[in-house]
Design a protein around this nucleic acid. Structure first.
Lengths: 298, 298
DNA sequence: ATCCATCAATGAGCATTGCTCATGAACTGA
DNA sequence: TCAGTTCATGAGCAATGCTCATTGATGGAT
């Protein structure tokens, strides 16, 4: 069925380039005889000569000219593909698909991604926010290669590393009475509107580590998609929210919002990076984890 | 050196298409074992897996996805190239590269080419106007396959056939005094502006067969590239030109131009088609010559 | 014209490659 | 649990592709 092989194209191109079978054979580390046999077989299969034999020289036929054009077009593509595959093999190239399981982490991630893209120009970074079977399932299902999450779920085949410690705080607007207190208590929220990301309640620390243990629920619960809008709402006095302290402090210069400690001890959180154990030796993945950890320590 | 072969791409594509090694093997008329061995060897050479082995299924790795994209791009090109070559072999297809050595022949050529393209749908016609070493050189150098010329130069290895007889005439604009005469004489052009194609004087019949023998030159000589503009100039009284009679008669319905015989006898011309003797048995080339000759006789 | 250097073609024989066969191990679904 | 799949693997063989040695043809130098 298939007749044309890479060698045929390589020979035709080499002969065109070096002018003779003998010279081409040298370049290809083969004998003149090998090339002659190979092309003769091709000609038999095509039922068509590739070259006019004129004296001791070779001149391409129309078919030969066409094959030469094909060779000049396709061979570089094959060569380029091999180059890229070698980069894959050396761990220099790949696609790093990052899954996010915590909304505010996105702000933090951006700080890691921009220097990373500079250091690893051949790596494509792709960030996904929704997964069919949750973050862990997405890792196992090769939907993503790395998971950013506050909830490490240690399972065989996966590795989680903490890369960032932070305190989860309550954010309040201007002139809010809680600003004057050293910390907020659950009962203070009983008459508040609580703004959160649109995820199940059992995935929200403000519930699991603060409200639920005290048996208290806020008066109203309003889900908002984006961090920006969420803080706009807080700044305009429409409610309170729970966010990382560093994030609140960053916004404090632009909006009139203030952090309030959640309970006397505060709520301590960590962000983890999870990845498949099998991928632990991929350079560009390892490098991402290292950069994330370095960023924390800096 | 070269690792990637056509079979690798074919296997990767077939597996993607049919879902399993076993199914792909059937399609490729090989055994499952053969494909497994082949890809394993590729993986060893690349130092990189092509698929994740998950249970009894195969899921492409990033490198596998990349290879699949390469396969989907390159395999059709190889297949198409083989198709074309098979058509070459059957003599059904080729590229008929026609070289033109006479400017007004282009109008005549168009009349042959359109029915030819209909009769030989698989033949590509390509018309070239400039050659490094002249038309004969272009034929010998396989730059073109057929030469349209009024000057046959009989050399061994080439065949020229006359395909079209015509009379070269003088074209004059409205109210031109020469319109009233039975024919023009060289002296009538002594005070005229002569419009010609931009080629050397010794390639212009109006000089070689008319003016030069009489030792007369026109007052002005203006070169123009295209026939249309040339005739527009003549129609607006800016000069006279020498063109085939049939061409002038064709334009006479659209522009106010008239043919005048050159000398008492007129200037008789022939167009020849030249080609390499070695190509005489190529049916689609033979057919072109036949159609050109038939067109003359009709 | 002669000779030598150089080119491609060819046939024989061998080394390598690529294939099949037979089997095993891992997994899936009834 | 068990039949029915899947892919992986090793041994062996057949086909392929290569080299070597030689021939014939050609062109340039003498």
């Amino acid at each position: 069925m298939a007749i044309l092989e890479r060698t045929h194209l390589a020979i035709i191109r080499a002969v065109d380039e070096h002018g003779s079978l003998t010279a081409a054979a040298e370049k290809l580390h083969l004998t003149q005889s090998a090339l002659s046999h190979t092309i003769r077989k091709l000609e038999d299969q095509l039922g068509l000569p590739v070259w006019h034999r004129e004296g001791r020289g070779l001149r391409p036929t129309q078919a030969g000219e066409y094959l030469l054009a094909v060779a000049n077009r396709l061979l570089p593509q094959l060569g380029y593909a091999e180059e890229r595959l070698k980069e894959f093999a050396r761990g220099e190239r790949g696609a790093l698909r990052i899954g996010m399981e915590c909304h505010p982490c996105y702000q933090w991630l951006l700080k890691i991604v921009s220097p990373y893209l500079g250091a690893w120009p051949a790596v494509d970074v792709d960030v996904k926010q929704k997964f069919q079977f949750g973050g862990i399932g997405a890792l196992f299902g090769y939907e993503i290669d790395m998971l950013v999450t506050p909830d490490p779920l240690h399972k065989p085949g996966l590795t989680f590393e903490p890369v960032f410690d932070y305190e989860q705080v309550l954010v309040v607007g201007p002139d809010h009475p809680l600003r004057k207190l050293p910390h907020a208590l659950p009962k203070h929220l009983a008459d508040e509107t609580l703004i959160t990301y649109p995820v199940p309640v059992d995935r929200l620390d403000i519930y699991t580590q603060f409200l639920t243990p005290a048996g208290i629920a806020p008066r109203r619960h309003k889900p908002i998609e984006t961090t920006d809008i969420m803080l706009q709402m807080v700044a305009s006095g429409r409610g309170v929210a729970a966010l990382p302290r560093w994030l609140v402090e960053e916004y404090a210069s632009k909006l009139d919002v203030a952090p309030v400690k959640l309970g006397k001890q505060g709520v301590a959180k960590q962000i983890f990076l999870g990845y498949r154990e099998a991928d632990a030796d991929i350079d560009y993945l390892r490098a991402f984890v290292d950069m994330a950890r370095t960023h924390r320590d800096a």
